[in-house]
Simulated assay, not measured.
Amino acid sequence: MYLALAKQSNQSIAYEFIFRAFSTVPEIQALLFTFFLLLYLIILFGNVSIIWVACTDHSLRVPMYFFLGNLSFLEICYTTVTVPQLLSSILDAHRPIPVANCGIQMFFFLALGGTDCFMLAVMAYDRYVAICHPLRYSLIMTWQICTWLVVGSLMLGIVVSLELTVLIFTLPFCGHQPEINHFLCDVPPVLRLACADIRVHQTVLYSVAVTVLTIPFIIICISYIYIVTAILRIRSTTGRQQAFSTCSSHLTVVIIQYGCCSLVYLRPKTDSSEDDDRHLALIYTFVTPLLNPLIYSLRNKDVKQALKKVIRTRAGTRVR
């Protein structure tokens, strides 16, 4: 009898998941695959270009572009963790993903996403020091401090992600290949598949989301209160416009990133919110990494000039 119960229990435990398909119509699948692949390639090209320019142009070797290059590298890793799996599931909607692989994807997705949020706060602090304390900027934002800020952001993202991922995957997931109503192994849709009491896990998730989203956002808001106050004191109209242009690029990315993530992780969960979470995840998986290089390159004169200089140099080298 005990052996029978154990066998039945073992059969009910899920070892694989499948993702809910966007569509099972071959023509639509091909269209979606092409569309997402094109977006992914544009994201890679745009962010690699930012890193390339920041590393090769000596005039951009300042903390602001050091942080921007690291942010671009995070965006490349962030999308690479999710998009290949998305493309695979579009081509084969019934292809399963092992629970272990799902846990690995969740860990890197949360770690890189958390690091991204902390990095945006670091960049806001950098702008605060540059605008509010310009004479002391080089003394405060030394290369050692900048490196530690980047490493610290990464460590915080890894610690938070590891704790949450381990906690989630200690739960039992029941059923034969349960379906994740998502295109990646994010925490809310995976939690819904657990056949155990998840109230503690939901509380931890909410606490982590508040820590990763709210605290950096408060730092960003405080920084920009001081920044706007300092900008309004600038007598030169050109100086005010240049300062606002630099800050507005960063604020645009912040609003999109934090707005979408807050709606996914901080709002009350209902059955109707599952599809909304899936759609919102597309925004911070594709739109933010895509806009990051476009916003900073199109709205930043230094980056545009550096891009032109590098392209001319490369073109001249090839001609010779």
Rank of each mutant, 00 (worst) to 15 (best):
F67D: 01
G152W: 06
F66P: 01
V160S: 08
F109P: 00
L171D: 11
I43W: 00
I76L: 06
D92E: 02
I97A: 13
F169H: 13
Q105T: 02
L135A: 09
C132S: 12
Y78H: 13
S89W: 00
M155V: 10
F66E: 03
T56S: 14
I145R: 09
I168Y: 04
A30Y: 01
F33H: 07
G157H: 01
W143Q: 09
F45K: 14
L86M: 06
M64K: 15
D116K: 13
M123N: 02
L44H: 08
I145E: 03
L139F: 03
Y137P: 03
L44D: 01
V48F: 12
G157V: 06
V166S: 14
L164Y: 00
Y125E: 02
L74Y: 01
C102G: 14
F67Q: 03
S49Q: 10
Y40M: 10
G157M: 03
A111W: 09
L162C: 07
A130C: 09
L154Y: 14
I90V: 15
T82M: 07
L60I: 12
I140W: 12
I42L: 15
Y78T: 14
L167T: 15
T165K: 05
T165F: 13
C117R: 00
S153F: 11
F45Q: 03
P96S: 15
T147Y: 05
L164S: 04
H58Q: 13
Q85P: 00
M106P: 00
F33L: 05
V99Y: 09
C77G: 09
R127Q: 07
F169G: 07
T170Q: 09
L164R: 00
V62A: 06
I104T: 08
L135R: 11
A54Q: 12
C174L: 06
I104Y: 02
H58D: 14
G114Y: 15
L149Y: 01
C55D: 14
P134N: 13
V53R: 00
E27V: 05
A30K: 11
F66M: 14
C132T: 15
A111L: 05
S153R: 07
I131S: 15
F169M: 13
N47P: 02
L39K: 05
Y40F: 09
N101Y: 03
V150F: 09
M141H: 02
G46A: 05
I97E: 11
V166W: 04
F45S: 06
I97T: 12
E75V: 11
T142V: 11
T115R: 11
T142C: 14
S72H: 09
F173E: 00
L38K: 03
F169C: 04
L162V: 10
T82S: 04
L37Q: 10
G113N: 10
T80C: 15
F35Y: 14
V81R: 00
A54D: 12
L39C: 03
A30T: 05
A111H: 10
V151N: 05
C55G: 11
F73K: 11
Y40E: 11
F33K: 01
R127Y: 12
I50Q: 02
L135T: 04
P96N: 05
Y78S: 02
S49L: 12
P172S: 06
L110I: 10
N70D: 01
F118Y: 11
E27G: 01
L71D: 01
A121E: 10
T165Y: 06
L31G: 02
V99P: 08
S88E: 06
